[in-house]
Simulated scan of single mutants.
Amino acid sequence: MRKLPKAALEHWMREFYFDTPIDLGSSGVYTYSFRDLRKLAGVSDTDLDNIVFDDSPTRGCLALRQAIADQFGDGDPDRVMTANGSNEVLYHIMSSCLSPGDEVIVLDPCYHALCTVAESLGCNIRRWHLDPSAGFKPRFEDLNALIGRDTKMVVVNFPHNPTGASITAEQQQSLLDIVSAVGAYLVWDAAFNDLIEDGPLPNPALNYEKAISVGTLSKCYGLPGLRLGWCFAPPEVIRRAVELRDYTTLYVSPLVEAIGAKVIVTAPTLAAERRRVALSNRSILDSWLKENADNFKWPETFGGVTCFASLKGIEDTERFCRSLAKEHGVMLVPGLCFGHPDLIRLGFGCTEAELVAGLHRISAHMAEAYL
């Protein structure tokens, strides 16, 4: 394996996420407290007292895998592997399924974990570009032009991070048809699936034997700090990932598993409340963008809680984002973190008060220094 490149997004978040008062850069909904969870998920003192800090099965304890299989799959826990966040799942899947020279198709722009592991393995990366002038809508004719018999894996995330672009159920079936025709793996990152305006898409791993669906409690459910991710995958993929995991984290903490099993049962409730806030925030952001249409350009999308916007007259947005954070206390993410330095990622999964205050400060900063 070649040396993994610096994850520019995580480097940026380390610099600004914890010390900037208003976060309008993150890609998920705002977080729940443990007090919230104890009430919503019914986590009792007895549940906590019964946790034993022993080793746990490598694939995850049965109770948690069963809860995930029942909530998001077909009820078969043997098709589920849990991990310490979805990034660990992606690392294990790609490291165990890919070899140097394999052809891998990824979206562009792209969240780093969906691409750089394959790159570090020496894979041949082919990019399925999402065009800003077309509203970042995926063009399946472009995918057809990229894919072939040598394609080993196609990696997608819809709704897409950072653009918010998504696809319909009919388009998802078209994607499955294209990928299955060449027998490639489809890695379906479903981190934002419960943030599609028209409702979540089906789990493709239930309809295509080489689809691998990856989930997490971080983005839609407001629990990034729980560090719980999972995948639905073919048995041989899970077997290879487990063998690799013997050299990394071994398993998920019994504490996380016990709380996670409770949370998964109430996941729709957790997602519904945050989705309601996100849709309301979307209306606030839409109004603000219309008021600032001469300066901000954002192709309308219908999923996730981020937009990937351009700023009039600013080709390198890093300086703008740095000065905004330092002078006005608002964090955005410059597009360089996704290979597009002329754009910014703006997140609206926060509270309404935080969004309104942050947008007001962005307007002030633009008026003072840039426009």
Rank of each mutant, 00 (worst) to 15 (best):
L250W: 10
E315H: 14
S180Q: 08
S56W: 00
L146H: 05
A353D: 14
N87V: 11
P21G: 12
D131H: 06
T20D: 01
L228S: 06
S86N: 09
E10H: 11
G199K: 12
G28N: 09
N124P: 04
L143Q: 04
E300C: 10
I105C: 07
E291R: 07
L359R: 01
A261W: 03
A271Y: 03
V305H: 03
A267P: 03
N193V: 08
Q172N: 12
C61R: 11
N203S: 05
C307F: 04
T248P: 11
Y111H: 10
L175V: 12
V52I: 11
H365L: 10
E209L: 04
S56G: 02
A272T: 06
G135Y: 07
L285K: 03
D102A: 02
D177V: 07
H129A: 13
A271S: 13
Q172R: 15
E315S: 15
A145R: 14
A145H: 13
K152Y: 04
V106A: 09
H92C: 08
T82L: 07
P224K: 06
C321I: 06
E318S: 13
I105W: 00
A258V: 08
P202E: 10
G222E: 06
Y208R: 09
R276T: 13
G60I: 00
A134D: 13
V52W: 04
R282A: 09
